[in-house]
Simulated scan of single mutants.
Amino acid sequence: MQSTDASPPDATAAGLPLLYCDDDLLVVNKPPALAAHRSNLVGDDDDYLIDRLRRQVGGSLYLAHRLDRATSGALVVARSTAVATEIGRQLMDRSVEKAYLAVVRGWPDETGTIDHPLTGSSLKGAPKPAVTHWRRLARVELPIPMGRYPQQRYSLLEVQPQTGRYQQIRRHFAHISHHLVGDTTHGRGDHNRLFRIHWAMHRLLLHAWRVGFTHPVSGQRVAVSAPLDASWNRILDTFGWQSAIAGAAPKTDPHG
């Protein structure tokens, strides 16, 4: 099967950035702080990604998977329930590649796996299996005293969740005390404040960087990377991490 690393049909078009678009599905680069759809978890907002997309591209649209409101990056949206169902089946079969970028406190090992069951979005009921893998791309030590430490340490990780539980990445890294920077629910308020004060960072540093799946209609393998926004790039520039991102980016051949 052919691998496709596609560009949007019109990268300059106004509206949400489309990373891939055809007659069956599209992949959008979701901005942070925008809820994907109406939910009891996000309150009574009047602005949702799925509504913006319907106005932008027209027709019926269905979310093939979910991203937390605070998370940015690649989100797959189907143009039919059949395509959405097939993407969902691939997610259940774990044949969808999902890779995230995250900034965490501390210096975790170069590679690792968190195998820790989690409850669902209601935080009730029996926990279900949840597995997250990571690879450390870069780290930094900053001469900023806080608490009993004269320096603060942070790491840039590539994270690959094997399962898709509610806020899995955020909850898993909190579980091993490497909290995500900017996480106001499971994170550390002191480190979040440090990033706000020094770098005007008011968001969760978690980004759905890559998604890969088999196209439900054509059978081709679709691989899409979501560019980072200005706030992310500001942190990468400040910490000297741009080369780590460039080195970790996949080398794809659009012709398979």
Rank of each mutant, 00 (worst) to 15 (best):
H178K: 04
H186Q: 06
L156T: 02
I176S: 14
Q160L: 05
V131K: 09
P161T: 05
G182M: 06
P143V: 08
H133P: 05
L157F: 07
T132S: 14
Q162R: 13
Y154T: 03
P127G: 03
S155V: 02
V159W: 11
R170H: 09
I176F: 15
P161K: 05
P127K: 03
Q151K: 14
S177L: 10
R193S: 05
P129R: 15
H178E: 06
R148K: 13
Q162F: 12
A138S: 09
F195K: 08
F195I: 07
T132Q: 09
L194F: 01
D190A: 12
Y149L: 12
V140P: 08
V140N: 05
G187E: 02
I169Y: 02
Y166M: 04
R193A: 06
T184S: 12
H186E: 07
G187F: 06
T163C: 10
T132H: 09
A130H: 06
R170Y: 11
Y154M: 03
L194V: 01
Y154D: 06
H178I: 06
E141Y: 00
R148P: 00
T163W: 13
L137V: 05
H178S: 07
A130T: 05
L156I: 01
E141F: 02
L157N: 09
N192D: 14
S155I: 03
F195V: 04
R196M: 12
R153S: 12
P145C: 08
E141I: 10
K128C: 00
L157A: 02
G182Y: 04
V159S: 10
K128D: 00
G187Q: 09
R171Q: 03
Q167Y: 12
H178L: 05
Q167C: 12
H179M: 13
E158C: 14
K128R: 07
H186A: 01
S177C: 10
K128M: 03
L137N: 08
T163H: 12
P143R: 11
H179E: 15
R188F: 02
D190L: 04
D183G: 01
K128G: 00
Y154R: 11
Q167L: 12
Q168A: 04
S155D: 01
V181Y: 02
R139P: 01
P161H: 06
R153G: 06
G189D: 13
H186D: 07
R193G: 01
A174G: 13
H179N: 14
